[in-house]
Simulated assay, not measured.
Amino acid sequence: MVAVGVIGSGAWGTTLALLLARKGIATTLWDHQAARAQEMQSQRENKMFLPGITFPETLCVTAEIGEAVREKEMLILVTPSQRMRENLRLVAPHLGSETLLVSASKGVEIESLKRMSEVIAEELPESAGRIAVLSGPNLSPEVAREKPTAAVIASQSTEVAIACRDLLTTRHLRIYTSDDVVGVELGGALKNIIAIGAGMTEGLEYGDNAKGAFITRGVAEIARLGIAAGANPMTFVGLAGIGDLIATCASPLSRNQRLGRRLAAGEKLDDILASTHSVAEGIYITRAALKLAERFHVEMPLTTKLSQILFQGLDPHKAVLELMMRDPKNEREGIM
């Protein structure tokens, strides 16, 4: 029998565990808090992130890392990006020599500026040839309720990408393969910055034209940085680029979009963070993106202004005015 482990029991980790378990795959979901793991195992539900969705019998929840990792064909890593490294160190002693590793975390480590696949390869060097990354327009509540969507899985190994695709594909989730690990990871991470800004345009009631323009210029900004980092430009018009960007910017289910709306309403970042139990990755990737932009000499005006709003108290109305008054540019500058 195929067995899979999922490291991280947030909304997306739980959703992926549900999808696999519904296929009849023996799936073990890991939570670092014993009390929470026990609660989910006994109540057969993740009431914090996916209330009302019952776990199938093939899904087990545990706080024992070895139980989640040992003798698994595939291990899906769905932890917050800034905690990926510490969780990999817990995984390492139990990891099998043939286990496929899938990163479903969308972020960049702030301190090292490494993508999640790079962090995994660094911490688990013997597994470097078995790493894949998953991204796409995948809002957890919709996927968990089996609404149709698609995703892309990228790996440097075609065989690894196909094996992971076949395990993860369901009647409701269609998965494509790619060899552009850099583009798939950066598209999935950087879109969270643009989602915060899109939420702000809604909160400021600037209208659909402004939101459409903001999202489109966000694609250009993501592509500039991605191309400079070695990504295939076409990835950013695919599922990990425009696909994920549209879903995250348009949906009130998006944590980053909600954050932007609350900022536009005048709430302080610290107060917003204190009132939620979910992680808005856009906060972290904003810092990392500007450091990467400096490294690759890439201009990122939207990200710069958002950083000033998040961390320096810049008024959103003033930020928009400053963006509108920038010197004229060719639309494709930096991505031609």
Rank of each mutant, 00 (worst) to 15 (best):
195 A>G: 02
198 A>H: 01
198 A>F: 03
143 V>S: 13
227 I>M: 14
230 G>W: 07
186 L>I: 11
140 S>W: 06
234 M>D: 13
231 A>M: 02
195 A>W: 06
152 V>K: 00
198 A>D: 01
217 R>V: 02
154 A>V: 08
136 G>F: 11
174 R>W: 00
141 P>W: 10
137 P>M: 05
230 G>V: 05
160 V>Y: 09
152 V>C: 02
194 I>K: 06
155 S>G: 11
153 I>P: 01
224 R>V: 05
210 A>L: 05
234 M>C: 09
130 R>T: 05
182 V>H: 04
192 N>R: 06
189 A>E: 08
196 I>C: 12
234 M>Y: 13
216 T>R: 02
194 I>T: 10
229 A>Y: 07
130 R>Y: 06
171 R>V: 04
196 I>A: 14
179 D>T: 15
137 P>D: 12
197 G>A: 15
172 H>K: 14
190 L>K: 10
212 G>P: 06
219 V>M: 15
210 A>D: 06
165 R>T: 10
150 A>C: 13
148 P>R: 02
225 L>W: 03
210 A>R: 02
156 Q>M: 06
175 I>Y: 09
218 G>W: 04
180 D>Y: 09
225 L>K: 04
224 R>N: 03
166 D>N: 14
138 N>D: 13
208 D>Q: 13
190 L>E: 13
133 V>S: 01
144 A>F: 10
135 S>R: 12
165 R>C: 13
220 A>V: 15
140 S>C: 13
177 T>L: 13
172 H>F: 14
203 G>N: 10
153 I>S: 03
198 A>G: 01
156 Q>W: 09
170 T>D: 05
208 D>W: 07
136 G>K: 06
221 E>L: 01
128 A>H: 11
127 S>A: 15
144 A>Y: 10
